[in-house]
Structures are given as C-alpha cells and as structure tokens.
Design a protein around this nucleic acid. Sequence first.
DNA 1: CCAGCGCATGAAAGCGCATTCATTTGTTTC
DNA 2: GAAACAAATGAATGCGCTTTCATGCGCTGG
Lengths: 323, 323
Amino acid sequence: MTTLRDVARAAGVSAATASRALSAPDSVSPAKRQRVEDAVADLGYQPNRSAQALASGRHQHFGLVLPDLANPSFAAIAKGVQEGARRDGYAVLVADTDEDPRAERAMVRDLQPSVEGLILCSPRMTDDEIRECADSGPVVLVNREVDELASVTFDSGSGVSQALRHLRALGHKSVAYVGGPAASWSDAQRRLALADASDIEVSDVGPHRPLYQGGVAAADLALATGSTAILCYNDLLALGVSSRLRARGLSIPTDVSVVGFDDISAATYVEPQLTTVAIPLTRAGQEATSLLSQVRAGTAEHQQLRLPVDLVVRDSSGPAPIS
Amino acid sequence: MTTLRDVARAAGVSAATASRALSAPDSVSPAKRQRVEDAVADLGYQPNRSAQALASGRHQHFGLVLPDLANPSFAAIAKGVQEGARRDGYAVLVADTDEDPRAERAMVRDLQPSVEGLILCSPRMTDDEIRECADSGPVVLVNREVDELASVTFDSGSGVSQALRHLRALGHKSVAYVGGPAASWSDAQRRLALADASDIEVSDVGPHRPLYQGGVAAADLALATGSTAILCYNDLLALGVSSRLRARGLSIPTDVSVVGFDDISAATYVEPQLTTVAIPLTRAGQEATSLLSQVRAGTAEHQQLRLPVDLVVRDSSGPAPIS
DNA sequence: CCAGCGCATGAAAGCGCATTCATTTGTTTC
DNA sequence: GAAACAAATGAATGCGCTTTCATGCGCTGG
C-alpha cells in the first residue's frame, strides 16, 4: 500500500506539501504540484479514507435511513440522494429499517458516528426521538417536518385539494381515503387537508401498510363506505385497491374512481392507468443532500423546503356514476 | 466528544484495557469489564469509527455497486445485501451507476479504498475490468460470473428451459426473445440457453434497456417475427410488451403469450398477471454478503453460487392460437 | 519451596493523514 | 537599497483507536 509519504518522497517534497497539493492545489507552486500529481499517477496512490477522516474530521459520508428499499417511492428518493451526494463528493451509507421504528432508532445510532450527516426519509419515529437524533449530528428530514429541523417535504395539502377538486368536477360527492402507516407524517398531513374539504364528503378507511397487499385489503372497506371515489395514501395502495375492485366485478372508472399519490412508474403499467398526484421524489432526494451540506455549513439551519406536487389525470378517474 | 481515554479514566483502567473490554471482552477480568461498560453507559461513549478503522484496518463497510436503484430487481437485491450486511455488523455504501459502464468503473475506484469488500451487482464492465477491480480488493459478483471470482448467479439455463417447456406444452412452436442490455452477462446466458432449444423456433429481437419503455418499443418487433409467444429478459420488459400488445388490440394470452424473468411484485399488479421465472433476488443479496465475508476470510476464494429459479405460471401465458 | 507458565494489565508505538507553526524565499514599498 | 510583508515549504504534532511488548501477578508441578 502506497502512502502519502511515498508520494512525497517520489516527488521530492515533504508530506505536508504533498497533502496540500492534493487537497488545496492553489497553495502549492505549480512545479511541485505537477511533481506530486505525477508521483500519484506513477505509484497509483489512493488516499486512505480512514486516515483522512481521522485527521480532518470529515469522512465524506452521508447516511440515508429509509423504511423500505423495495418500495419504489423510497427507491426513487434514494436514487436522488445518491445522485446529489455523488455530485457533492459524498458516498452514501444506506440503511433499510423495514418500516420498524425501533430498528430505525437503532440504525440512526449506528450510522451517526460514521457519517457527516443523516437523511431521514419518512421516519416513523416520534418527534422527540427525531430531535434526539438531530442533537447528535446534522440531520435532514424527507417527507416529514419537525419544527426547527431542516426538511424536504411535499405539498400534500395542495395534492389533496387538487385531487378533490378533480373528483368534485367529475361529479363525485363522496370519497373514501385509504390511509398509510399510522406513524406517517405525510399521512397525517393528508388527513388534515381532507378535514378541510367542505364540498365533498370524506370517509376515512384507516391506516394500512403502504403496499399493494394493503390496498387489496382496503378495497372492500373503501367500497363499503358507499363512496364513488377512492383516494389512496400512495400508488401501491391504489393499485391494490383497483385490482381488488376489478376482481369484484366493478369497473374503473365507470363504477368507482381511484386516485393515488406519488406517481411511481407502475402507475402507468396497469390498466386502467392510474390518476395520481405526482410527487418529485428523486428531486427531493437531491434537494435533501444540498440541504444537508448547508446544514453542515451552518447556513440554512432549519430550512423547510416544500416541493410542489401535480395531479396527473389518467384513466382511473372518471365521472361519478349516475345513482 | 468523549473518547476511549475518558472511558478508561472513568473506569480507572488503562486505555488498552478499555479497548479490550469492548472488542475482546473475554480477555479482560469481569470486574474491570463491568467498570468499563458502566463508564461507557455513563458517558454515552460512541467509538470513533474512523479511528478504529485506521488503527485496525477494518471499517466495517461493504460497498454495493448496481446499475439502477429505481429498478425493482436491483432494489430487491440491494435490500438483501442490506439485511445480510446488517446481520454481519457491516454498513453498506451504495452506488448507483445509472447503467453506465464508465461510471461503474469510476465508482468502484472511488468506493474500494473505503470499504472492506465490494459487491458488484450485474456489472456492465468487461471481464478484464472486473478482474482489475478484484485485484484491488475483495469482490463478489451478483448476476455475473467471471472465472476465479466469487459470485452469486441464477440458473438462467434452467429458467429458460422451464419457460420453453411450458410454452411448448401449450402448443407454441415459435418464441421471440426480447433481450436485455447488450453488456448484460445474464442476457448472454439466456441467449446461450435459447440456442440449445431444439423443439421450438427462437427469434431474437435484440438488446433493450431493461425497462418498461424498452418493452413497449420491443413489442412490435417481437410481434413481427410471427411468434406466438414472447419471452423477455425481465419483467419490466414483459410488462411493456404486454401493454403495447394490448394497446394494439391483441389479447393476452389468447393471441400471444408473454413470459418474463425475475418475478418483481409489479408482475402481479397487472392484468393479466405475468407468467415469469421467479428469481430469488433478495436471497442473492444476502448470499453475496456471506460470500464476501468468506472471501475476506480467505475461505471460499472463488466460490460460484448458482441459485435455483422457478417458473411461476400466471395468466399471461396460454395455449397457442390455432392457426 | 522455587522454577516456570499463563494471564491480565499498562505503557507506548504507530495507523496515514491534515494542519499548525516556524522558517525560508521571493516580492514589494518608500 | 533596506525594511516590511506575503507566499511557499517542511518539521512536527496529534486525531482516537488498536495492538504489540514488557511487566507483574497468581498458579501449578516437581
């Protein structure tokens, strides 16, 4: 293993100069800088990250904690984080909690000492737990707001009202809401927005795992409310709902309209294609990394970014049936 | 920040003993071990990973390089790697190459110095490049074989022949193969197996990006071959093919049978549900981490694990149309 | 009863790098 | 032309930990 000393010796300079030539090129004379660069190339020198980290206190690692990598929504966010981090010269440590709040807390604890900052994606922890996490290192939240903490969220309120206005315009007078995980902040946000709805009756079908199977299970409950439209916490649920409804012989959107949230790619694979509130998942991941950099730098301590969302009308929503 | 010295002082022992109490408890007297543990708890001591890594040469990090996190097949593998690594006490650095072989090589180079081992998932690099990577650190391949290197793969041959036998039994005499990325090893494997098929005619529709849109594009080509069945490199392609075919007014499986590979969850979201060769993706991720541990330990230097696959018959395959 | 052994322990030596500090060299100003 | 200053450099220090190495201790066995 070749070390910086080897490089320095080969270049005929001190280790200090070699170090500077690599990390702050402008502070070294062009001639020596060149010699160092040549030596690096010759010897195939690779800096030892651990040593860099120890000496400088920076290891160029971000941590990302999310509930489920196999969930396309989170995968999209992870991809964005990935891209953003790479752009800023960071590597990303990923931890999948499997939707378990306890595992979440543990993983944060594990990860925190070995990263410069943490991105908590849709954390299921309590606000207090999250504040604890934020006390022991820079933290950015995605899809969750806790006061005083930096976060990237989506304008759920607007999403809900866009969806509702759309359904209302189609003549629907009642809508069932198929909720997501009980511990989900964004689910709470959506419920809040739903409570504001005045010109349409809303029935709540309760919390569900944000997965296809959850939707299959929720469909019958939603139908039993007598609503002519079903709004779902996310697309996976909406897909499950649609599927079950069709299996029961109903036609979508003729008998029932279904609207999802997220706009994952599977929303267009299915028949009928899903009307859904599109959420800039990947962008959120990117924004989260920039925010994290800023939080580390001390600027933008508790900036709360709220990204816009847009209803994408496809084939799963249509005029209310004439009753 | 509390250091090991602080702990040692609080416990009334030397730093060496404190270190041993934590990393090799059996080599320390029970009394002192207890004092150290108490001190750790009291002070909320968190070891500095960088320092541990530098001193010991082990940083407890694995690297995972894959083509696309947003692709559910890779996400499933990532999830498995995640689980396996966690079980072994490792954290995972994830890098998404966006299907770009050049980025892949660069990311490997970046990652390698800061991890104890690398898992290369479906690498698009050449064999020689992969061998280079393996020269500079422990490497395990997933979904790719390179001689002498440890790998976890799937029995594509069996998968293809199961699919073919199934189609043959349904009376199909010709099948079109919609291929995956040109640089994909598993695609090559499937082609090899297809070449062996004697009792059914195979037309090759060429390489495609392993995504839904690729399938949409490939559908017309596949249909033009006059085949009554279409076998796809993966489910995403199969989904795209189905969708396009149905849009063109064909009925699946009445007019054409479609079979995929992987068994991602979306395969069951769609109508008709996809017949596909199920591949133990998540398990492969887990196996890869254990293999990596073994490679590091020197045992199982170049073990090549080949996981079994199983045809899952659903609704997208049926009897050949009577012509 | 003492040589000899093993075990628990502490002192100390780095791991490879970044960074501070003092020094030298080259440049500017009056 | 000398004084004052800036830029470039190297020696040395230490980041927090693991790991030899040497020491002292309580044992066992002859």
